[in-house]
Design a protein around this nucleic acid. Structure first.
Lengths: 226, 226
DNA sequence: TGTTTTCCTTGACCTGGATCAATAAAGTGT
DNA sequence: ACACTTTATTGATCCAGGTCAAGGAAAACA
């Protein structure tokens, strides 16, 4: 099995596909490389296919007229993006931008849809994926609309802490500015919120590295009743 | 064709189904009535199926520990809700509550999934629906995170204006308190924002009835650059 | 290695919108 | 038509967090 085929067969959205389906995918797939900061597609742009991250990190983001930014998701290896436009509307609902040097596989719309229509397992995988994303977006709204910045931050740090099994120090996976945009805050506000947590001995921080000193304190903070 | 079957065949998610598939759906469907204000399911509750609105209005909503509320969608006749849990997670990602006396059809999970697996057209319809919802949620985040209340309100009024073809007065489809929760504002703030629009002669308002006096003014307001 | 650029932090200030409170208006049921 | 409950308006106050500004730390680059 060649490299590309192996890469594709490892993708969750393609779980359970037959060998010949994988071959068809290999045939239509096309690799694209992106520099840090380069735009993969713009909000509202006509869609001619969708992408799966192979390496690097991609942010899916909304940008206002004033230039303010809200990150919807940050995606890593194996995760698809831009599929919505395949099924509804025909244009991308948000902007995709590389947070770092990244590589993606591109699947062009028409050949892909043809393939899907011939294989009943695929829409089901896609449904599961879209459902997960949908759930994440609902959570985003909950966080932004109903919680304050320190709560959101605490929730995010707990999420990072649970990602790794140990309670060792970990690195913030993205620059703090980007984290601010993910949490729906200004970089200044995030900086202050972090400083306050350090002050309260809930975490300690050196550059990107964070150590959780008081997990229970974090939990309390994340579900603050005020 | 009996009433229930007709109702089901009119639903967009069931477009293009064969007669025998419709019959199967009729067999598993079950009608449920809800009083104004009654909860259909809670955020985080285990899911045993999903619903389609037949009559009335349902809100899908997130509620914080402090009791603050953010409406994600408001659904009317023909629209499905609660399907996410079928495909991922197994629990409802938000609370569903009847805004008024409503009737829904309930489709129990297991029989439905069995049906779906036998009919390849259905997941595709569902994908299209989920995609549309996803797009709406992304828009919600954009509104809440990146725009101010007057902009969101102007956008919503334009949406209502475009729903009907004429530029005649129209009624707000929901109470102003609920509209506030949909727009991510407090009822007081919404009240003031509406009062200001009346003051600026952009709209006039009598109870639930709104007349748009200055559509261009509304448009400007909806995409304010500040 | 130094230089430029980007990112982070901290301070001072300001404002959109939440909250509290009290009244008015609209619905609802009897 | 009347009492009761729910919804809407308006005023006064307060604060989370945005914005502007300026200095420091890290990265990126030549």
């Amino acid at each position: 099995m060649d490299d590309l085929k192996k890469t594709i067969s490892d993708m969750a959205i393609y779980e359970g596909l037959t060998d010949s389906d994988l071959d068809s995918l290999v045939r239509i797939a096309c690799e694209k490389a992106f520099q840090k900061g380069s735009i993969i597609f713009f909000d509202g742009e006509y869609s001619d296919g969708f992408y799966v991250v192979i390496a690097g990190r991609i942010k899916i983001t909304k940008i206002s007229a004033k230039g303010k930014e809200q990150i919807l998701y940050i995606l890593g290896a194996g995760e698809p993006f831009g599929q919505l436009a395949l099924y509804h509307g025909g244009v991308f609902p948000a902007t995709a931008q590389a947070l770092e040097k990244s590589t993606c596989l591109f699947f062009p719309k028409n050949p892909f849809l043809k393939l899907v229509s011939e294989n009943p397992a695929m829409p089901f995988n896609m449904l599961a994926f879209l459902s997960r994303r949908h759930r994440e977006l609902a959570l985003q709204i909950e966080n932004i609309a109903l919680k304050e910045v320190p709560e959101r931050l605490a929730g995010y740090l707990l999420y990072l802490l649970n990602e790794q099994k140990t309670s060792k120090p970990f690195n913030l996976p993205i620059p703090k500015e980007q984290l601010a945009y993910l949490l729906g805050a200004s970089p200044e506000t995030l900086s202050r919120a972090l400083a306050k947590m350090v002050d309260q001995q809930i975490i300690s921080m050196h550059g990107k590295s964070v150590t959780v000193l008081d997990k229970n304190g974090l939990k309390t903070m994340a579900s603050a009743n005020h």
